[in-house]
Simulated assay, not measured.
Amino acid sequence: MIQLIECPRDAMQGLPDFIDTAIKAAYINQLLEVGFHTIDFGSFVSPKAIPQMRDTAEVLEMLDLHKSKSKLLAIVANVRGAEDALQFEEIDYLGFPLSISETFQRRNTNASIEQALETVETIQNLCEVKGKEQVVYLSMGFGNPYGDPYSPELVAEFVQKLDELEIKIISLSDTIGVAEPSLITELFKVQVEAFPHITFGAHLHSRKDQIEEKVIAGLKGGCRRFDGALQGFGGCPMAKDELVGNMATEKMIETLEKEGFELNLDKSELREAMKLSNSVFF
């Protein structure tokens, strides 16, 4: 079964002009009608770091969740953010960005990798108390532009540490769009076989002409969870200055269906969401 994670938070967070709270909520409400597994809808982080997400709590109050089967995921960068997010029953998942790159970890969360792992453990304990689940994103999971060490073996070491903390969902993240299909397949194949009790996701950034080959590469490696954003909007504002777009969800859907997967999405609601995205992002 394929899990499609739609990420309006990732699509919006790097935009310089603030999107009105009501517009954010209207767009996410439309996405909730489509039938995605999860909506990565917002983040509880410093408004100084990501000003676009300063209204996440207000957006949440405006969401109509009664008819939707989609779950909600919010990104947090420290324990305080996790405690804020855990105040809301509507949120199912807390996502934490752990980096294989020491440079990017400090740039992204103002903490070392060692400190970040301690944060992951604390958040995991909080989630267990509240009945929530933590999703850990292994950023720079396919390469490193900062000169820090990188290897598939290093990825495996991080996964082992997260397994010891009983993390059940790990998303391998290509933060800057450098992943080659062969490496995508190799990384997922090794991790999926070594840790069958963990759900491994792909949070890839890509040019549109490379999306199909990257999805197929992930499938070959055993990945069944994919993150994307309609029309490929967004990218990580804490990475290199030139943002590489998210995987365009509509292209991933096309590829997955071509590969024979039944996604059970409401295509008419998807078309409406595509139309609405044009007014939100242009």
Rank of each mutant, 00 (worst) to 15 (best):
L162R: 04
F104V: 02
G232L: 07
Q115G: 02
A11V: 04
V76S: 01
K69T: 13
H37S: 11
G42S: 13
K71C: 03
L86C: 11
S70K: 12
E180C: 01
I123S: 05
S182Q: 14
N29T: 05
V178W: 01
L138N: 08
E121T: 13
T21V: 14
G228K: 06
L256I: 10
N144Q: 11
M12I: 15
A194D: 12
S206T: 14
F188A: 08
L86I: 11
C236E: 02
A179I: 05
G42N: 08
S139H: 02
F226P: 03
S112P: 05
A25F: 04
G14T: 09
D10E: 14
K71L: 14
K267W: 04
E262L: 13
E193P: 00
G232M: 07
P47Y: 05
D20Y: 08
Q191F: 02
L219F: 06
T103A: 05
E61H: 12
R271H: 10
M62K: 15
Q30S: 11
I2T: 06
K240R: 13
H66V: 11
T122G: 00
L219Q: 09
R106K: 14
D10A: 10
S173I: 03
I100W: 02
E89T: 10
K214R: 15
L31Y: 00
S46F: 01
F282W: 07
K220W: 01
R54V: 06
G234Q: 07
L73Y: 00
Y27F: 15
G228L: 07
E157R: 13
N110E: 11
A239H: 05
F282L: 13
V192A: 08
V244L: 05
I2F: 08
C127I: 01
K240D: 05
L72Q: 09
P237I: 08
A25Y: 03
V190R: 14
S43P: 03
V190N: 13
K161W: 03
L31V: 00
P237H: 10
R106H: 12
S277L: 07
F261T: 04
E250F: 07
E121S: 15
R225W: 04
D209W: 10
I216V: 15
M140C: 15
K69W: 00
G218Y: 06
E153R: 11
G35N: 06
K208H: 13
I211D: 01
P51E: 07
I100L: 15
L187Q: 12
G177A: 07
E166N: 15
K251V: 15
L265S: 10
A74C: 14
Y150V: 02
T21Y: 03
M53K: 03
L72R: 12
E121M: 07
R54H: 10
T119H: 10
P51V: 08
F158K: 09
E259I: 08
A229C: 14
H205L: 04
K67W: 09
M12V: 13
G221Q: 09
S70M: 11
L230Y: 03
D266H: 13
E186G: 00
L72V: 11
I23H: 09
L165H: 07
G260E: 09
L263P: 07
Q210R: 14
D209T: 10
H205I: 04
T21A: 04
Q13D: 08
S173M: 08
I39Q: 02
F104E: 01
G141E: 04
I216L: 14
T255K: 13
L187G: 00
E250L: 04
